[in-house]
């Protein structure tokens, strides 16, 4: 089983978000970067579990500069066999997906896994784009994935329930909660990761189709209005008359 897992580098979840250069750039000062949790906890770990149950390889792919190497090494420490970095500053989703599709197109991966979205741009874009570029089926927001007899059985949360889907042949899948449990790399994994291959590949030329012009922080809340815990009729009145929420 040949599995490709896409990894993105994102700011840690506790990061205080700030912008510089006239609100055109994310302020990376003092920011701790991590593997996008959906990529790591769900896509990567499920990929590893499937490999362990069946034999095969898990390769990770990241589009980015050398600054992404630490998070790639962490994925190798968690258990990926080898890693690919397409040497290009991350631009828009289209050009990122294009790089991944160009790499994957002649490598006959059985599946390409990634997280349902990144926690920075919340795009949910790369998986569907890669699938279209490679003419593969795409299953988004999957919470379970099992392989048997060349068929993948996949469970997704749908509004008000779950749906079980079946796919034959290669596919692209974006992973959501439920798919697997986070794995903490152990000392042996960290040591082994140092000698695992991290292949840096030059990028192909592609024009982005979108760009971020500026950022804004949400307006500050006016301040909380406290209501006496013994006077819930007052809360109901406020929600009805003032907030018009009920």
């Amino acid at each position: 089983m040949k599995i490709l897992v896409c990894l993105s580098k994102v700011p840690d979840t506790t990061t205080r978000i700030a912008f510089i250069d006239n609100n055109t750039k994310f302020d990376e000062k003092d920011v701790q970067f991590i593997i996008n949790p959906y990529d790591e906890w769900y896509a990567l770990v499920r990929g590893l579990e499937l490999k362990e149950a069946n034999t095969g390889t898990v390769t990770t792919i990241t589009v980015g500069g050398a600054d992404t190497d630490p998070i790639i090494r962490k994925a190798l420490a968690i258990g990926a066999d080898d890693a690919v970095r397409i040497d290009s500053p991350a631009s828009d989703a289209y050009s990122t997906a294009f790089q991944i599709a160009e790499y994957a197109k002649d490598k006959a991966f059985d599946m390409i896994l990634l997280g349902k979205e990144t926690i920075d741009y919340n795009g949910s874009q790369i998986g569907g784009m890669v699938a279209e570029m490679l003419d593969l089926p795409f299953i988004s927001l999957a919470s379970k994935l099992d392989i048997a007899g060349g068929k993948a059985t996949i469970e997704c949360d749908i509004p008000g329930g779950t749906q079980v889907l079946e796919v034959e042949g290669a596919f692209v899948l974006s992973a959501a909660k439920g798919m697997a449990e986070q794995r903490i790399p152990n000392m042996r994994g960290i040591m082994a990761a140092r000698s695992k291959p991290l292949n840096v590949i030059p990028a192909v030329a592609v024009e982005p189709l979108t760009k971020t012009e500026s950022y804004q922080l949400p307006p500050a809340k006016a301040g909380v209005k406290l209501v006496d815990p013994d006077n819930m009729a007052e809360l109901v009145r406020l929600l009805h008359e003032e907030a018009k929420a009920i």
Binding site: A93, Y94, N122, S124, G128, M129, E132, L141, C156, T210
Partner: peptide, 24 residues
């Protein structure tokens, strides 16, 4: 819509038509 189906379809369409995509 940026819902379950939209999240799968919009990026495919973007790649298919070489159309820039903004989600959400």
């Amino acid at each position: 819509s940026h819902d379950l189906t939209g999240k799968a379809v919009a990026p495919r369409l973007s790649a298919r038509l070489k159309a820039g995509l903004v989600t959400g």
